[in-house]
């Protein structure tokens, strides 16, 4: 075979594999939308489930997911941004900073089911928080911490040196410079990390199934109570074959949430790219 014919064939193969990759996404989302849309109605979104989710809606699961993901972000954001500030503003590149980054990467690689086991042994049992929003939210916070941390670090590192130096030249202290120059300039990057974390926390099942989730269609009244959550509800509906239609409806709601978060992130990135 001629080398140029071979090249043409191989380029065709490269195009084809990119197309296959994209088609996975299109097929999965298309399928969930197609199967889930018939289940969606005002009642489905605003009512509690009846008969273990066979009938009724998913309102308590939506609320529960907001509580869990919200708590996770509330806890992970200050720690993540604080850690990022420490790395970028308060320390020089050293073995220690590499160790910190290695720690975050390692935590990022821990399987979600291990977070579930850990959350149960440490938070539910040892700390005595019980199966609760607190236990689930904290478990999720630990899981998304590396995402928030590394994105914030990248954003803060991108702040130009001369801006900081200008601030120092005007007599500002380090803390003033961080508060008035570094953080405002990196806020869009930090927010990107928070939204990414929010999306991940909303979609994870394994970490909350032992620590927070139950199939009880009442709204939680405090952070010490367990709650329903979208991904866990979806898992129960599917694995026990309770109602495939409602499972697809729940999946559609979950996928819309993830899509919205994704769009927000790319919007922020685009805006930032335009400003430069």
């Amino acid at each position: 075979m001629d080398r140029y014919t071979k090249q043409t064939i191989m380029k065709g193969v490269l195009w084809a594999s990119a197309l296959i990759t994209i088609s996975f996404l299109v097929i999965i989302i298309g399928f969930i939308v197609y199967k889930g849309a018939p289940a969606i109605s005002w009642e489905f979104l605003t009512e509690a489930p009846r008969r273990s989710g066979r009938l009724g809606g998913i309102f308590p699961a939506i609320v529960g997911t907001i509580y869990l993901a919200g708590l996770a972000v509330l806890v992970a954001t200050p720690i993540g941004v604080g850690g990022a500030l420490f790395l970028t503003e308060f320390s020089k590149e050293s073995k220690f900073t590499r160790f910190i980054r290695f720690g975050a990467d390692t935590l990022n690689g821990v399987p979600s089911i291990i977070f579930g086991l850990f959350g149960f042994a440490f938070l539910v049992y040892y700390m005595g928080f019980g199966i609760s929003i607190l236990s689930g939210g904290l478990t999720l916070a630990f899981m998304i911490l590396p995402t928030v941390f590394r994105t914030a670090e990248e954003a803060i590192r991108a702040v130009p040196r001369w801006d900081k130096e200008g601030s120092y030249a005007l007599g500002a202290t380090k803390l003033q410079t961080i508060w008035h120059v570094v953080l405002p300039q990196s806020i869009s990057g930090i927010v990107t990390g928070i939204i990414l974390g929010l999306g991940r926390a909303a979609g994870e099942t394994a970490p909350i199934i032992f620590t927070a989730a139950i199939l009880n269609p009442v709204l939680p009244e405090s952070i010490m109570q367990p709650t329903m959550a979208l991904p866990a509800h979806l898992y129960t509906l599917t694995s026990e074959g309770i109602s495939m239609q409602n499972a697809f409806g729940t999946a559609l709601v979950l996928i819309v949430i993830v899509l919205v978060f994704n769009m927000l992130v790319s919007l922020i990135r685009k805006k930032k790219a335009l400003r430069r």
Binding site: I22, I28, I32, E204, Y235, T238, M244, L254, V258, N262
Partner: peptide, 28 residues
């Protein structure tokens, strides 16, 4: 221009919750 479609699509694929992959896998 193709890259600008493919890259975000791959990011989105990474963001789909795993339980939804499970549901898709089971039914399809």
């Amino acid at each position: 221009r193709v890259r600008e479609i493919v890259k975000p699509a791959i990011e989105l694929l990474a963001g789909i919750p795993s339980v939804i992959f499970g549901l898709f896998g089971l039914i399809v």
